[in-house]
Computed example of a mutant assay.
Amino acid sequence: MASVRGVFVEPFYGGSHKAFLDGLTAHSSHEIHLLSLPDGEWRRRMRRGAQELAAAARALPGQFDFLIVSDMLDLPAFLALTRPRFERVPVMAYFHENQMTYPRLKGTKFNSWFGQINYLSALAADVVAFNSQFHREDFAGALRSLVSQPNNWLLEDGVAQVEAKSTVLSVGVELDWLAQFESPRRKSGPRTILWNHRWEFDKSPELFARALRAIKGRGVPFRLVVAGEPGENPSEAIIGLESEFATDIAHFGFAPSKAEYGRLLWQSDIVVSTTRHEFFGVGMVEAMAAGCVPCAPRRYNYPALVPSGLHSRVLWDDEGDLEEKLESLLTDPLPERTALQEAARRFAWDRVAPDWDHAIERLARGEFARVQDGPAD
């Protein structure tokens, strides 16, 4: 099919959302016009993004074959405010995350406003694409659970429609840049543990800190690299590691450049995740591509990232299992790194872009819009 022309609407153009869109526009064979707002307070972006972007959308020149929006956009409001601009344009809603199952701070309640935005956007779209099969099933499960509760705001038929038009499109991850920073790992001395996640509550930094203390208490030596963005509310559990493990720290703090981050990945041996959610796992893919061995929960999307033959060695079930798995990775021979690197390469843009181009072509032809009696493939 010849190149088609479309718009991608992203009210939160920052972090992993920005990295994904930059990669998609760079690697797709189709013409994609980006309509976006810079990253900011995410609640404000979800509440106001459709209003703030509507005028710019109406002013876009020419005709479009497709429209893609991220989960941060209130799609029904956007379509209403831009009518009739996209009246006959097929629409995809792409979900990086969702507000149905995103972890909440202890003591806070589920805010149905944002859940409704996600549900109604999925209902209004012609196709709903998720960044992983885990995410697709997780979202559907949340809808089915909510529809059974009293005073809910869903229709059973609406939930069935969303499930029927759901599909999976992996995010692409830029990996080629890592090769220029490759360097031999240390062959002697303690192995290096890497934390390359945000320092906030949803990543369970307290659990990570407890595991380090337990390992240290057993007399197992290690070096520690703490990177990742502190975020808006960095946890004291991470901040305190700098002094508590002062003699073990090889690096502490957000990597000041892409080059420094790349060098840290190649210098590390084991990348640990203690998160309370993971819809995909870009940071884990980057670390694995550089040869880091994962130590992550046996849930969320991690089983899909790690080769199945290594699940029993590197994926943990609870806190005690985390400590045992981490100690084993620090003291026993490590799994073959090349298998992990190849597993990560599955998500490189050169492999993912053709899937996106094919999906965009199908969307532009209106094929997804006709899939109403069964799941999209």
Rank of each mutant, 00 (worst) to 15 (best):
M1T: 13
G6W: 03
F8V: 11
P11R: 00
L21M: 11
T25Y: 04
A26M: 03
L34I: 14
E41A: 08
E41P: 09
M46D: 01
R48N: 15
Q51W: 09
E52Y: 02
L53R: 03
A57M: 02
D65T: 07
F66R: 03
S70A: 04
M72T: 09
A77D: 04
A80H: 10
R83M: 00
F86P: 01
A93Q: 02
N98Q: 13
M100H: 13
P103K: 01
P103N: 00
N111Q: 12
Q116R: 14
I117K: 01
L120T: 12
A122H: 04
A122P: 03
A124C: 11
A124S: 15
A124Q: 15
D126Q: 04
V128A: 15
V128N: 15
S132A: 13
H135G: 07
D138E: 14
A142E: 02
A142R: 05
R144N: 06
R144C: 02
V147G: 01
W153N: 14
V162S: 08
L175S: 05
D176G: 12
L178P: 08
Q180E: 14
S183F: 00
P190R: 09
P190Q: 06
T192W: 06
H197C: 06
R198V: 01
W199Q: 04
E200K: 10
E206A: 15
E206K: 11
A209F: 04
R213T: 08
P221S: 08
L224T: 12
V225E: 13
G228N: 07
P230V: 06
P230L: 07
G231S: 05
E232Y: 13
I239P: 02
G240F: 09
L241M: 07
S257V: 13
A259Y: 01
L264P: 07
Q267H: 12
S268A: 15
T274V: 03
T275C: 12
F279Y: 15
G281P: 00
V282P: 06
C292L: 13
V293S: 06
R298P: 00
R299V: 04
R299M: 11
Y300V: 11
N301V: 08
L305T: 02
G309V: 05
R313L: 14
V314Y: 11
D318A: 11
D318Y: 12
K325R: 12
P335V: 09
E342C: 04
A344M: 11
R346F: 09
D355A: 13
D357S: 08
G366P: 02
